[in-house]
Design a protein around this nucleic acid. Structure first.
Lengths: 98, 98
DNA sequence: AAAACATATTGACATTTATCCAAATATCCT
DNA sequence: AGGATATTTGGATAAATGTCAATATGTTTT
């Protein structure tokens, strides 16, 4: 099967910024979070339910993803919603992951 | 500009294997190596020249890339040639990197 | 408005893992 | 044997990971 390219907008990251993005994706929990976010924004507590780690651990991983530019956060009410910040992540993941 | 998708063959990695690939790509030196390999196979000494690290450091990074399934190695003569093992890496990198 | 609750982040800490170089070792060719 | 190429080992330093406790922030209740 071929890469299902969706022609999502290309991002031009510097070499080091791209390495930082890959590094952020290179942890099972963070990759899990990103895959959940592929379906749309989620609050921290929803992302927490999808894992088996402490809430503070999820918060740290979200901070790592945010610092790498993979996600952005927005507070609404008492929840904080995270969403993907790199459009072509869906293409990237679709190319590699089952 | 859009993602220049090349419809390279899709790979179906498990979640953990994909995280390992991203982790391997998530280091500036290793990403540099991978980008050199996009142009074709290279021996260790050629890859070494393209960096500013000790040869033993490059060898370690190559081992990490190999263990993650990103590259394969083949000995020919007194050189060992490395090449990319994941076809759609070019698509993935093109989507993200300048 | 104060108290209580729900949601999320931060700090402190222990443990593990990564990174790098230098020296030693291995392998192949001449 | 000697030279060229590459890996492995040892050890020092830095970074990542996870949890608990403490703190912050927004919402609801009284």
């Amino acid at each position: 099967m071929d890469c299902n390219c969706q022609n999502t907008e290309k991002i031009s990251l510097s070499h080091d910024a791209a390495a930082a993005v890959f590094k952020a994706l290179g942890h099972p929990v963070r990759l899990h979070i990103v895959r959940m976010l592929l379906e749309g924004e989620r609050c921290v507590c929803e992302l927490h339910k999808g894992t088996e780690r402490d809430l503070s651990t999820i918060s740290s991983h979200l901070n790592i993803l945010k610092n790498a530019g993979v996600v952005t956060a927005e507070q609404r009410g008492k929840n904080i919603y995270y969403r993907l910040a790199i459009p072509c992540l869906s293409t990237v993941l679709n190319c590699l992951v089952d």
